[in-house]
Design a protein around this nucleic acid. Structure first.
Lengths: 253, 253
DNA sequence: TGATCTGTTCTCCATATGAGAACACTATCT
DNA sequence: AGATAGTGTTCTCATATGGAGAACAGATCA
């Protein structure tokens, strides 16, 4: 259900395309961008100097880069979310207790967005970063969240993003996904058994408030350290207890 | 030395103004924005739906808000900085060791940008967040960085941002500032004695690489817990040792 | 049910955009 | 050093396009 703007502002779209391209390349020169995007040099120059004047772009020599203004805005958005403030210390505590990699994730636009990340002392070093996005169907946190969204939302999300496969075990059909969500609801937590990265298992618990999901917390570890007899798993208790603490603390805010 | 674009793209400026306004208000409706910015409703509608289509804005009911896309871009910028990757674990370690609030900051556009923040177990709760910006002259980290920048850069920064006062003790003249920078160079670390917030003292050490400053690390605590006989201060050794570790680890990247 | 808020769509003209050419630098080569 | 080939920047003007304003469509309320 991609929404198309009826009257898109083409000039703004050009600026946003430049931002995307700078983001992708980690900075670029005017000529490079002109070649790549087949726009005139003067146009690019005008856009970039406008973005620079407003602090969204910085110029190092002749290379333009996105500025930390994005981190400012993003950080502000995050710090204003009640659930983040409550979850952040708990994520750290769980990372320390479990020794593994712990994330806190919320959903936006049908994708999962990592808001917190904390590494325990033997944690694997995934290439996630605060703010990065990941599809819902191929992750434990995604299934934890989806399992408490109305079916209609789930459909919208699938329609929008599809069910792209990233490993041989990724769920790629609607039926499989709905089965997995059903099992997640029964168990109270979601699992990802190498569906997102081979050699990696994750478990995730939803964070609910007033019977609405507002995020999920997850533990990621090598297959060797997470037993796939889920009910017996030592991390499950730690995870669910932490999720519960976050839910309860949320009431105090 | 504010750079004015010779041929600003006015349409882009309008979109950026909207982003600023949404940022300031934490979301707004079309009518509100139209009244506040004295633009037509249709114009605002076109801009916002364009921004939404490109994922920079999300619509909740009739309220438009900035999306976590900003956190994505900002987080990516941060995670790609070598110095961040090296500093982050050290900031956590220093927070744990000192028990206080520790920040890692870099300079951009003449301001300090917080890249890391970690709280020790008795840390004060400042309203800083990852990505937030603060003037250089009224902070320990700022003076730590300025003290290793060429005078010409320091002048540019003062010209651009002035020396605004935030407490009675804030440095407000160039002479005072240059004296403070001189003392900082002699000591090897910078101090802020209630110059930024009454009741708060900070110490900061520059992080240098190839004789260039690339950031600073700081400890903040209530005046009662930081002795103003700086040379005797227990935190100084912890701080400078950590700064040194970061500088050395940076070579390995 | 009608009144009064919203947001959305449409049309059309004043206006801002950007291609392209000319210019000004800077670096590199001979 | 002087020539050459890259840059980024400025300028102009024909034309695409942005947005005011009006009309429309939903929502919310009395």
């Amino acid at each position: 259900m991609e929404k198309r703007a009826k009257h898109p502002v083409r000039t703004t779209e050009k600026s946003l395309t430049l931002i995307d391209e700078l983001n992708r390349r980690g900075g670029a020169r005017i000529t490079t961008l002109a070649d790549e995007l087949s726009m005139g040099k003067s146009a690019i120059h005008n856009h970039l100097s406008t973005l620079e004047e407003h602090g969204f772009v910085v110029k190092n020599g002749n290379t333009y880069e996105l500025s930390l203004r994005f981190l400012d805005i993003g950080g502000q958005l995050r710090s204003e979310m009640d659930v983040y403030r409550v979850a952040e210390p708990q994520v750290e505590a769980l990372a320390e207790e479990s020794g593994e990699l712990v994330h806190f994730v919320v959903e936006e636009g049908g994708e999962g967005v990592y808001l917190c990340r904390s590494k325990g002392d033997r944690a694997v070093d995934l290439d996630t970063y605060v703010g990065c996005r990941h599809p819902m169907h191929s992750s434990a946190f995604g299934k934890a969240i989806l399992s408490h969204l109305p079916d209609q939302r789930v459909e919208e999300i699938i329609d929008r993003h599809g069910l792209p496969s990233v490993t041989p075990k990724t769920i790629t059909s609607r039926d499989e996904l709905y089965d997995a969500l059903e099992r997640t609801r029964e168990r109270g937590f979601a699992v990802d058994d190498e569906e997102r990265l081979e050699g990696l298992r994750c478990i995730a618990a939803p964070i609910r408030f007033d019977s609405e999901v507002i995020g999920a917390i997850s533990i990621s570890a090598p297959t060797a350290r997470i037993d796939d007899d889920w009910e017996e798993n030592e991390f499950v208790e730690q995870l669910c207890r932490t999720a519960n603490v976050i839910e309860l603390n949320k009431y105090k805010v």
